[in-house]
Design a protein around this nucleic acid. Structure first.
Lengths: 252, 252
DNA sequence: TCAAAAACGTTCAAAATCTATCAAATATGC
DNA sequence: GCATATTTGATAGATTTTGAACGTTTTTGA
């Protein structure tokens, strides 16, 4: 059997089985475990699957769970600080749109004392205050995007198209002088409506986001009122933003 | 079995069981308790679950976090059985509206294998499958009714007014020959839309609901296709319903 | 309150798996 | 056809994972 055919069979088998051992795959493609090992290493480098001890695992294309667990574990201190700073900055008794994503989630965590009205499409944010009673939460409708707990689709877009709010707290994948970008196309339509609906737009961006471009364009810089970031954000990136009239707040 | 597969099975099992002992898990994944212990320690560090003495539980005991109502915490066994029976009764690949409330929640718990499309205004139900990927969940919008985790208000009503579904799985406070009644006025408008939207209407009612009248009128009996109840339901109440052409299914 | 029982964390050796390497087998180019 | 390059399967030593043992801590029930 050709190498390519072997690899094709392996990925196909994983699509069905989700997990598989070296033994099993070796038998399936009628090759030695050494060969299968090599195939798996190669396929992993191409992002087709994830090697595990003793075998391999399927990576679902939807498994963008990194936003809420993996990526979250990196800059967690910074995000926590940004969340606190942003929450402190927000006046009481406002209606606040909270974007889906880790950064905005950390803001939501600190909002309780401001007795806001929260409007969101994030299931984790909704769960934060679902049994609280002190904070009124409006959840947009939509289809649940698996593993992220974000509500997406036309129902979500429409929910935001019909409301107004004092503040929108947003996150994104990157910011350059050409505007703000984000990675998930599904989210962009919703985020655009959020920005439209809010009187004041606040972006929470940790220092890794500056100068970075993500897949899709979300909005121009003149739609942004305030950016909240951490101390490690490069001044060279911040200064041009200030000159455009954007308020910049840095954590200490 | 691979380590990751084991861990996935453990978390999946906990999603359903909410709590599980080491013994039980060890048997489930066919590994020693030592290994399961290690898995649990790891999964706890990732925030997937909470270790307890003797086992582990869900980090958010999803049904317990929301206090549905006091009387609902009784009859748990019956509701569990009704949930299983109802889930078994439903064909695969249907679009299913799930009412808010404990009884319908128990049905939702058993629906995974039917790969349904779930449409609901219940946050606990949404959380059940939020990280699943196998089950598509559409959540209506709305204001979160505190402590119940139910989405209510015009946004919720409107969400259901614009959709259609194969089946609606409903619960209520009481049923008499004069119709079905429920206690929460806020819910009734939504439930009416649910019933309208569905081709087939199934009510899950434990035996305490028969002959009982709640505050507000929800619907007439001729709008009901099927009733699923437990073995203790009084035959004297069931017979008139059968004569009206309603299908009655009892658990054993 | 106290003692028995259950469960916990730690440690350790065995088993399984990994990486690196190398010779044989196969394919490729001239 | 022959020399060379690539792929394959096997082996050896390092690494990781596993299951069991043991002393300690927590829970249970009288």
């Amino acid at each position: 059997m050709q190498a390519e055919e072997r690899q094709k069979r392996i990925t196909e088998h994983l699509q069905k089985a989700e997990f598989s051992s070296l033994e099993e795959l070796s038998e399936l493609v009628d090759a030695s475990v050494s060969t299968v090992r090599r195939d798996l290493t190669y396929l992993e480098s191409k992002g087709q699957l994830k090697r595990t001890h003793g075998g391999a695992r399927l990576i679902q294309p939807k498994s963008e769970e990194f936003i809420f667990s993996e990526r979250d574990t990196h800059e967690i201190d910074e995000k926590e600080k940004i969340g606190k700073t942003c929450a402190d900055y927000i006046p009481g008794n406002q209606s606040v749109i909270i974007d889906a994503g880790t950064t905005a989630y950390h803001v939501a965590k600190h909002l309780e004392t401001k007795s806001p009205q929260i409007i969101t499409n994030s299931l984790p944010v909704a769960n934060l205050y679902a049994s609280n009673g002190m904070v009124e939460v409006i959840l947009s409708g939509g289809v649940i995007y698996p593993r992220l707990g974000v509500l997406v689709g036309p129902l979500a877009v429409e929910s935001f198209s019909r409301i107004h709010a004092d503040i929108a707290i947003m996150g994104s994948g990157g910011i350059t002088e050409e505007g703000i970008t984000n990675s998930h196309n599904l989210l962009i339509d919703i985020q655009k409506e959020m920005i439209r609906a809010a009187q004041k737009v606040i972006f929470c961006l940790d220092h890794t986001k500056f100068g970075r471009k993500s897949v899709s364009h979300l909005c121009e810089l003149d739609q942004v009122d305030t950016i909240i970031t951490d101390a490690r954000a490069p001044q060279s990136s911040l200064e041009p933003l200030r000159q455009r009239g954007i308020e910049i707040i840095q954590t200490d």
